[in-house]
Design a protein around this nucleic acid. Structure first.
Lengths: 187, 187
DNA sequence: GACCAAATTTTACAAATGTTAAAAAATGAA
DNA sequence: TTCATTTTTTAACATTTGTAAAATTTGGTC
């Protein structure tokens, strides 16, 4: 579980609190195509991606819109559903056979209410997700499609290899045709 | 300081912890046009907007891009700079004469490390900011300019009255000409 | 009310992106 | 390898959005 532990330590958890936390994780393995999170359900679990890759998407009238990718050492949850206890709007699908560790909100809340170190770790976890989410937002708001594609291949070269371009076009907010045109310029 | 206290209570702080927290807030008043946060600086303060309205924007080569508005009962900080201790990329400008309460990161960290209730309150604060940021992102990713404008007038009718349209166009990610065209359809 | 400056809308045209359909290329299973 | 399927690219055309400039409206001041 090295990727998961790396992620947890990175945010400042160590000692007994770390040991406690890890002992409460449950390992699951799921095949490519599995829907880990389904729109409309209340999702009470956080996953740590140990191995594999996933995408979050929403169903629009006529098409799916992909808006997030996660891979090894990323965490995976429906912010909206998990934090507010309401039905979520997104699906999360595994794009490869994957291994994950999970912990339920009940267990987590219990830790938050008894362990100051874990409570502050949880805050840092959310802070780091917030920064990443704002980064995606800013990229979408400020940059041209070409710049966003360049950023993407610089930031996530591995994802580019492992995910089909239709999903990436959707993630970048452009049609697959436009993505092909952009890629053609780079040759 | 009713708006500020309302905001703080909403996220679950009460009793002695609330009293302690409030006693550490410092009131400031600043005129329209004042830059509360400047790009390139390390920003170590969180503000609570008691009265007034503000926008966050980045300087792009040729133009400014507005990407956030805040008003009464909103909190105001540079996520990137405050959480990571690095220079921020955004400016925050007051669009009206405003009253705010502020607290420094030093003081806040001290509370986080000594008061479990405040530590969990801080986490909830960040969670609520994350949900709002994701909402803005999703709106940008999924919706047409017209839908985003409709959402905006439904969600922030007051802001529409108080802020000039050029900033709103920028916030919606469209040119002011396009915004005028959209508004013309609604008549 | 007249005037000025700033903000907003409109117009005309250019550029970028989307849609649909088809061709080409890549992938994977037998 | 071969064949069928999926993915990616290309082409042609339609639509949307942007840019620049002019016209109009708004708000404040004398």
């Amino acid at each position: 579980m090295e990727n998961t532990i790396k992620k947890i330590r990175q945010l400042g958890l160590n000692g007994d609190s770390l040991t406690d936390f890890i002992s409460l994780l449950e390992k699951i393995e799921s095949p490519k195509g599995h829907l880990l999170i389904k729109a409309g359900r209340i999702e009470r679990v956080v996953y740590f991606i140990e191995k594999g890759i996933a995408r979050a998407y929403c169903d629009q009238e006529d098409r799916e819109v992909t808006f997030w990718f996660g891979a090894e050492s990323d965490i995976l949850l429906s912010y909206n559903s998990f934090f507010l206890g309401k039905p979520g709007y997104e699906n999360v699908e595994l794009l490869e056979d994957s291994a994950l560790y999970k912990i339920s909100n009940d267990v987590l809340q219990n830790l938050y209410n008894t362990d100051l170190q874990i409570a502050n770790w949880g805050r840092k976890l959310v802070e780091s997700e917030l920064i990443k989410t704002e980064e995606r937002f800013i990229s979408r708001q400020f940059k041209t499609a070409t710049e966003r594609y360049e950023d993407f291949i610089n930031s996530y070269p591995a994802v580019l290899q492992r995910v089909q371009l239709g999903y990436i076009a959707s993630y970048l907010g452009i049609s697959q045709v436009t993505l092909s045109r952009i890629r053609a310029e780079f040759r």
